[in-house]
Design a protein around this nucleic acid. Structure first.
Length: 303
DNA sequence: AACCGCCTCAACCGCGGCATC
DNA sequence: CGATGCCGCGGTTGAGGCGGT
């Protein structure tokens, strides 16, 4: 293992990427496609290591990635998949094709871990005593969430990477008067065209900051949000079976086939792992695809 | 207004797996 | 079959933003 770190070379730039670098990378990848990262720095003249280029692309510039607020059903998916798969962020990300593993990992570490902790604390007294009423509450909460989501889908405040790049370019052009603006415009147009043709563009708008967490107690909304998924299996008891049957079932290879067994046991650090039921069956069924997951999420407001 | 502490998230680091020679 | 190199993953870090005092 004596191999030196790839970024140790002198002249290799580290730290935040500049808009200029982003543009170079994006336009190169638009032309040659992602992959062969080794050759990217040499071919583009970027003073970055191949790894850094790949990371920048996969975590930030790649078309179709959602940024910003996670919806309650995405939260639910993550919580449940984390319980199922452990910290296999790449595998979890494969169920949320618009999210990067890094994003999910960050969101888990900064938000969900805390939420779950709060949730556990808040749930303990309820659980200790009246399990039926808890179940009822869970089911009620679950069903309320379902109907309210249909009526008032939470505004997703995502900016696609196209929009990011667009904004980024605007900002860059404003802040860099020395830049040849016509060339930049052409390049920008080209990038936007190509990105749009690759298909993506999420909802409009931008929400600057995720909601701040409240005090020590879990707010009703947080509680509800967690319960609605955390207790899916309880809720499923009272849930119309036809909803289950209508799920376009299945999931992609990632979790289903490979390494799930021993070494990927869920981590024990945080959550009470919910019992497994239809969701797990669905998740673990080989024949599913990410597209079906998307479809399911659209069809089924339960998530 | 200034300072401080906390939070978030983009980016880095180190390692393992796999392919190629 | 071992050595080497590339890629991808998970854990960690640190700069910048934000809120509280």
């Amino acid at each position: 293992m004596g191999r030196p770190p790839c970024c140790d070379k002198v002249g290799i730039k580290k730290g935040p990427w500049t808009p200029e670098e982003d543009i170079i990378l994006v336009s190169y990848i638009q032309e040659h496609g992602p992959g062969n990262w080794r050759s990217v720095p040499t071919n583009t003249g970027l003073l970055r290591c191949s790894k850094s280029c790949r990371l920048r692309w996969t975590n930030y510039l790649r078309p179709g990635i959602k940024r910003g607020n996670f919806t309650p059903h995405e939260e639910g998916m993550i919580i449940h998949l984390q319980a199922l798969l452990g910290n296999k962020w790449a595998a979890i990300a494969s169920y949320l094709p618009q999210r990067t593993d890094n994003d999910i990992k960050n969101y888990w570490n900064t938000h969900l871990k805390k939420k779950l902790k709060k949730f556990q604390t808040a749930l303990e007294p309820h659980m200790g005593t009246e399990s039926t009423s808890t179940t009822q509450f869970v089911s009620k909460s679950f069903n309320e969430r379902r109907s309210s989501d249909i009526i008032n889908p939470s505004p997703s405040a995502y900016a696609s990477s196209t929009e990011n790049i667009s904004r980024l370019l605007e900002g860059w052009m404003r802040s860099s008067p020395k830049t040849n603006s016509s060339t930049t415009h052409q390049l920008k147009d080209k990038i936007l065209d190509q990105q749009n043709s690759m298909g993506q563009v999420q909802a409009r708008g931008h929400q600057p900051k995720a909601e701040q967490e409240g005090g020590d107690l879990v707010s009703h909304e947080e509680f509800d949000s967690i319960l609605s998924f955390e207790n899916l299996n309880n809720a499923a008891c009272t849930w119309d079976k036809s909803t289950c049957d209508s799920m376009p079932g299945k999931a992609s290879q990632a979790a289903a086939n490979d390494e799930t067994p021993e070494k990927n046991k869920p981590t024990s650090d945080n959550t009470t792992t919910p019992p497994l039921s239809f969701l797990e069956k669905w998740l673990l069924d080989e024949s599913a695809s990410a597209g079906q997951v998307e479809e399911m999420m659209e069809l089924s407001p339960m998530f």
